[in-house]
């Protein structure tokens, strides 16, 4: 077991070090949600009235509403960034080094997932800190309660990234992922608007949002930030994590062939 943990630690430390060295990535990871929070939310504040919906106990401003969605957004982008870095690793060869380790392949890939989650936690907490400087805060214990929720949502979104990386043949194809995965997942969710607001314009849109796993990741984060538990969201996120991870394992199965496609 010590050998397994040594591998896990090394993979997480390597990813964290690469992230810290790459200041541009850290800054862009923070700037993106902050632009949404400061610019977008300020503009839409008047346009979007919000009713009192769980877990909130009172009327809230739009900035407060979208904070959990932006935490999810950070993790979504981070999941895709990890996916990009996996494709890069495959092209550069370091994936071969990882996969020829005598640890089980599922453990190596899980360690990769955990590395991505660790990096996303750094980003989310930095974002929550800056949001607090802007006066957008949550109950003090919420910062603690959200920790396990962020691990779970990070695992699910990381597993999705892992799955995507197993299907992408070349780095150049990655831009397509942005258009076909990140944007629909983000906009067709409860990150920016509550589902009842979506239903006002289209029931179909609401239904799509309701089956989007990202919606449930956002709701899990939202409820945790306010010290509430959302079992339905938890079920969705856990199911999504397991499903995406198992499919990713199939993609990385040497018999089926990640490396087969690459020759």
């Amino acid at each position: 077991m010590t050998a397994w943990l040594a591998a896990l630690y090394a993979i997480v430390a390597r990813e964290a070090l690469r992230f810290v060295h790459n200041r541009g990535r850290f800054l862009s990871a923070l700037v993106r949600p902050l632009v949404w929070l400061v610019v977008f939310a300020a503009g839409f504040r008047a346009a979007l009235g919000l009713s009192i919906i769980p877990p909130y106990q009172t009327y809230i401003t739009y900035e407060v509403y979208i904070v959990p969605g932006l935490c999810g957004m950070i993790q979504l982008f981070n999941g895709m960034q990890s996916s990009l870095s996996l494709v890069y690793d495959q092209e550069m060869g370091s994936m071969r080094l990882l996969l020829t380790s005598p640890r089980p392949r599922w453990w190596l890939l899980f360690s990769k997932l955990m590395a991505g989650v660790a990096v996303s936690l750094l980003q989310v907490y930095a974002f929550l800190g800056i949001a607090a400087l802007f006066g957008i805060t949550v109950p003090a214990l919420g910062y603690l309660y959200v920790f396990p929720a962020l691990i779970l949502s990070g695992l699910m979104l990381g597993a999705l990234g892992l799955l995507i990386s197993s299907t992408i043949k070349q780095l150049e194809n990655f831009a397509g992922v942005m258009n076909f995965v990140i944007f629909p997942m983000f906009f067709l969710s409860s990150a920016l608007y509550p589902l009842w607001k979506m239903a006002e314009s289209s029931d179909l849109l609401r239904d799509i949002c309701a089956v989007n796993p990202f919606t449930h990741a956002v709701e899990l984060i939202r409820f945790s930030l306010y010290g509430s538990f959302n079992g339905w969201a938890l079920l969705w996120v856990v199911t999504g994590t397991v499903a995406f991870f198992l499919l990713a394992l199939v993609g990385y199965d040497p018999a089926r062939g990640l490396m087969r496609r690459r020759g």
């Binding site: 090394a10 550069m92 080094l97 005598p102």
Partner: peptide, 29 residues
């Protein structure tokens, strides 16, 4: 032990860090 045709090094890390990473993948720390 494998040396692939394509280099598999982290260029921005030191030799020692690269070695430690690999050692850990093999359970050595």
């Amino acid at each position: 032990g494998v040396v692939f045709q394509q280099p598999t090094l982290d260029l921005d890390m030191t030799v020692m860090r690269n070695m430690r990473y690999f050692a850990a993948l093999h359970g050595l720390s």
